[in-house]
């Protein structure tokens, strides 16, 4: 399941609801991404996430489907926020549930790595020095490429 929303989320409530009644699940991995208070040396006042409505949902759904072909997941949920956020705010939630922990851990990391390089979101950071669009990081591309089959 995927959701793109302005509102905050409750990770624990989402995880509980996701696996409610499914007793094949033996492990649930929850990842929450937060807004950091700094970008390198610069202190951040706020971060605004822009996205491409429609394509965002399609890309996230494709990424989830890809994870399901690679690992035996019982359930998966991606929630990504957009709009104006401040340091400490939650940005993204990825929950994976499987019979055994290995699949849940691996699929979770895969989903985070892939959504960072494929889902059409852009971060605009605001600091005392003005506003600046965040540049894509080579380290994120590298992390995503780990999952491409040789």
């Amino acid at each position: 399941m995927i959701r793109v929303q302005r509102e905050d989320f409750d990770a624990q409530a989402e995880a509980r609801a996701l696996v409610a009644g499914n007793h094949r699940v033996g492990g649930v991995v929850t990842f929450v991404g937060l807004v950091r208070a700094n970008a390198g040396e610069t202190a951040i006042d706020a971060m605004t996430l822009e996205h491409y409505p429609g394509m965002t949902e399609r890309e996230l759904a494709k990424i989830e489907a890809e994870a399901r072909t690679r690992w035996p997941l019982e359930a998966a949920l991606i929630v990504h926020r957009y709009g104006r956020l401040t340091p400490g705010d939650q940005i993204v939630l990825v929950i994976t549930a499987a019979a055994h922990r290995q699949a849940a851990f691996a699929a979770n990391e895969f989903l985070v790595d892939w959504l960072k390089t494929k889902a059409p979101f852009w971060k605009l950071e605001a600091s005392t020095q003005g506003e600046q669009w965040v540049e894509a990081r080579a380290a994120d591309d590298h992390a995503a490429k780990r999952w491409v089959a040789e």
Partner: peptide, 10 residues
């Protein structure tokens, strides 16, 4: 057709 910079979500 949509034109945009490399993505920076997550």
């Amino acid at each position: 057709v949509a034109l945009f910079p490399p993505v920076t979500g997550g």
